[in-house]
Every structure is written in C-alpha cells, then in structure tokens.
C-alpha cells in the first residue's frame, strides 16, 4: 500500500476497472450505475462494492457526486486507487469513504469478485479473503 487518504474499515467484493472514472456525468447520483457507453463498467453499479480503479478524472464537481451517492446509500464501501486525484480524495474525505492508494503491482493483483477487507488502522490494512 502506498498511502492512506481517508481512514476507515470496510469489507466487500472487489469491482475493478482498469479505466479511470469521471464521476460527474457518468455515475448516477441516485443508483451508482455507470452511464458511459465507452467505459468498461458501463451499466454496472458501484454500490456497496470495494471499488478498485486507477484514479478519478475530469470535472471538479465529481466530488459532489461521491458525496451524493453516499447520501443516497449507493456508494462503494471503500475505494482503492493507483493515483490519488483531488476529486476522489476530497469526495471520500467529506463522505467518510475509506480511500487508499496502492502500487502498480498491488493494483494488478486485485481481481473482480474477490472478497476483501480494508482496515487502515491494522498492521496489514488490506487482506484478500478467498
């Protein structure tokens, strides 16, 4: 793991994207479903997942989308990125969604559907339970 950006604990199933995510305009604020036809997570919901993706991109207002999906109970339980961008970092900070960054090797190790536990206070913050 590289860095802890937002502290917390979460357990869940990995939903992974190798493509970055533009939260504004491509993630539905109420359902957490991805609407961008060119995105590999098109029509998938990020709700209750442990969302693993390279980084957030695009509009600065995406931070509000993250806050909104949390308020609408449609947010991921935690996010794991390769690179910390400000939209995701501050959206997660305000919404209290645990956020960490990982190395390229660690990132490639995560697979869709894996059960994972994240506890930023633990000695080994990330553990895969399958």
């Amino acid at each position: 793991m590289k860095k802890i950006l937002v502290k917390g604990k979460a357990q869940g199933i990995i939903l992974k994207s190798d493509m970055p995510i533009n939260f504004l305009g491509t993630v539905d604020k109420k359902t957490g479903i991805i609407s961008d036809k060119n995105h590999e997570l098109f029509e998938k919901s990020i709700k209750d997942s442990i969302l693993v993706f390279p980084s957030g991109v695009g509009s600065s207002v995406g931070a509000y989308t993250i806050y909104s999906i949390k308020s609408n109970e449609a947010s991921p339980r935690a996010m794991i990125c390769q690179k910390a961008d400000l939209t995701v970092a501050t959206g997660c900070a305000l919404a209290n969604i645990p956020l960490v960054t990982v190395t390229e090797d660690e990132f490639s190790y995560f697979k869709n559907g894996q059960k994972i536990s994240l506890d930023t206070g633990a000695k080994n913050p990330i553990s895969i339970n399958d």
């Binding site: 509000y64 989308t65 909104s68 609408n72």
Partner: peptide, 13 residues
Amino acid sequence: LSGVNYNTIGDAG
C-alpha cells in the same frame, strides 16, 4: 468554486 448547478450536485449537494 464549482458545484453550483443543481443538475450536477442534486439534493444532497
């Protein structure tokens, strides 16, 4: 500041 258009920030915003 961004986050002004109700279309983008919604009820939560």
